[in-house]
């Protein structure tokens, strides 16, 4: 009995070591391709700066789910929602491209004894770690342009969007390994979610009941609440939905990969 427990603990420890080593190896591989890392900085910085520099000071009035009414200029609203959109697009596309590349390497790794789950999870963790630079720069640059009333809520919204959309990119990579269609699916979906349906700019759709189930809805609500009111009342919903969404995409991605292998 004792022997069995010791053996199972040892095998779990071995799996953990394998997982960490694989994550570090994926991460090393990513950092070796400097252009990939640099590319994650281009889109957020340009998109945030251009929305701030270009958008007119048109007055906007909209409600939050908490029934609070916010009156702000469009440029201010665009700055924060633009930061989320930029992060969503970057994380989604980065997640997709990196996962497609890692899935190809994964096929060889599985031949040398690694399980699909470990390969998939360590690939996801490595891309999340690589995205950190982009998240930090996005946050710092937005804060430099305009200070929100609560930094805490704003920072967490960006982090959650990065988490959800990188998991989404990872999921799409397991569905298709074709760059054109995968990139377009990630791009159009994140654009529609963050720029149109979850955003006060999408006037007729915004706050309709079904939009609450979109992955970008709660982070967008939190960013508006924390930036313009200074409260973080929606934090618990955002935390719950974001983690659930990220987990859902991750598990779905894993399931699709496994089903494809069986077939």
């Amino acid at each position: 009995m004792t022997e069995k427990i010791v053996l199972s603990a040892a095998s779990r420890g071995f799996v953990l070591v394998k997982f960490i080593r694989l994550t570090l190896s994926f991460l090393k591989n990513l950092f070796r391709q400097k252009a990939i890392i640099f590319s994650t900085l281009v889109l957020p910085l340009f998109l945030i700066w251009s929305t701030w520099w270009v958008t007119a000071e048109i007055p906007m009035r909209f409600k939050l789910t908490t029934d609070v009414i916010i009156s702000q200029t469009m440029v201010n609203v665009h700055l924060y929602t633009g930061a989320l959109t930029a992060m969503g697009l970057t994380a989604g596309l980065f997640g997709f491209i990196v996962s497609v590349e890692n899935n190809r390497i994964g096929e060889r790794l599985e031949l040398s004894g690694y399980s699909t789950t470990i390969v998939n999870l360590s690939s996801f963790l490595s891309l999340l770690l690589a995205l950190t630079t982009s998240v930090i720069l996005t946050v710092l640059f937005t804060l430099f342009l305009r200070q929100p009333k609560s930094d805490y809520g704003f920072v967490l919204s960006v982090v959650f969007v990065a988490l959800i959309y990188s998991a989404f990119g990872n999921f799409i990579a397991s569905v298709t390994n074709q760059f054109t269609e995968g990139s377009l699916i990630v791009l159009v979906f994140s654009f529609i979610d963050l720029m149109l349906f979850s955003n006060p700019m999408g006037e007729q759709i915004y706050l309709q009941d079904w939009t609450r189930f979109l992955p970008g809805f709660w982070p967008t609500q939190l960013v508006l609440e924390s930036s313009f009111i200074g409260k973080n009342e929606l934090m618990s919903q955002v935390l719950l939905y974001s983690i659930l969404y990220a987990l859902f995409f991750l598990v779905a991605g894993l399931a699709v990969t496994k089903i494809k292998k069986v077939n």
């Binding site: 252009a35 990939i36 590319s39 889109l43 697009l89 491209i97």
Partner: peptide, 14 residues
Amino acid sequence: VSDSKSLGLYLILT
């Protein structure tokens, strides 16, 4: 011009 797929994609998209 760009050897990296991801860099080129982000540039054209931006």
